[in-house]
Write a protein that binds this DNA or RNA. Structure first.
Lengths: 137, 137
DNA sequence: GTTTATGCAAATTCTTTGCAATACT
DNA sequence: AGTATTGCAAAGAATTTGCATAAAC
């Protein structure tokens, strides 16, 4: 998959840094915090990564998850249509190891809100202890 | 409702500050941040409020909501049984006015997780624009 | 040469803790 | 007295911005 082409299609000029940030997110097994990416891309500056992420989010290539860890996590959007909520699968945040898992197989059920509410995004996070940490304890 | 009695039942010594913090939360129309409470209770110190909230949360009289506003919001638990998830109705966070609304009438649907996951809490937040802000725009 | 992106440093915001002073029992 | 609570001040952690330099067009 050509990342540069993907960015261009969504109206983002694919600079080296932006491509790098997007690739890092794409390859990550779980949602990444700004700090996570900073640690991976030691060549890149925090603010540069931050601005790249902000741009990617605003163009709906990436979305954020608030898992309550204290740091915002970023994840590549699965769907190309940002009006669909296919991306918004639930997440599981392990309070022991701090990892965030995507529960891809589960769908976020539809909530019936009056039409007067404009929905932009949905954040569904289950917190607890993951299987790894349970078995170790 | 006797707040002091309520605290005692849950094993918390009802100091003046704790009672005040709990009453403030009880009377609030929407979940409150530490800052919100600080602004309401000008006599109380931030760290005192913080410690009271932390204590209330640990004794399951209050729970937290991460609405993505940047600040954690606190809300009085509805159910007395902290193993039930009756409390965990969805919330709506308005990105325009910054208020968080409880969607009491909606239930958080059950997600089927393998038994190996231990669930402690659930955070379901819908973000967008609330009816007030939509009509003003 | 003008616009855009990056790097560095620092401001902001929110949460959390150390410690001395106060209040409770 | 001895323990628990509060207030103040400051440390930590994460996000965000100002500004000068560097790169792109």
């Amino acid at each position: 998959m050509d990342i540069e082409q993907h960015l261009i299609e969504r109206g983002i000029k694919p600079t080296a840094m932006r491509t790098l940030v997007f690739r890092t997110l794409s390859q990550a097994r779980s949602p990444q915090s700004l700090r996570d990416i900073e640690d991976t891309l030691i060549t890149a500056e925090r603010s540069t990564i931050f601005r790249a992420l902000t741009l990617l989010v605003s163009h709906h290539l990436v979305h954020t998850i608030e898992d309550g860890s204290g740091a915002l996590k970023y994840e590549v959007c699965m769907s190309h249509d940002h009006n669909s909520f296919d991306d918004h699968h639930p997440h599981f945040y392990c309070e022991h190891c701090g990892r965030t898992f995507c529960l891809h197989d589960e769908r976020i059920p539809r909530i019936n809100l009056p039409d007067s509410y404009q929905v932009h995004s949905i954040n569904f996070v289950i917190k607890g202890i993951c299987p790894d940490c349970t078995s170790k304890a």
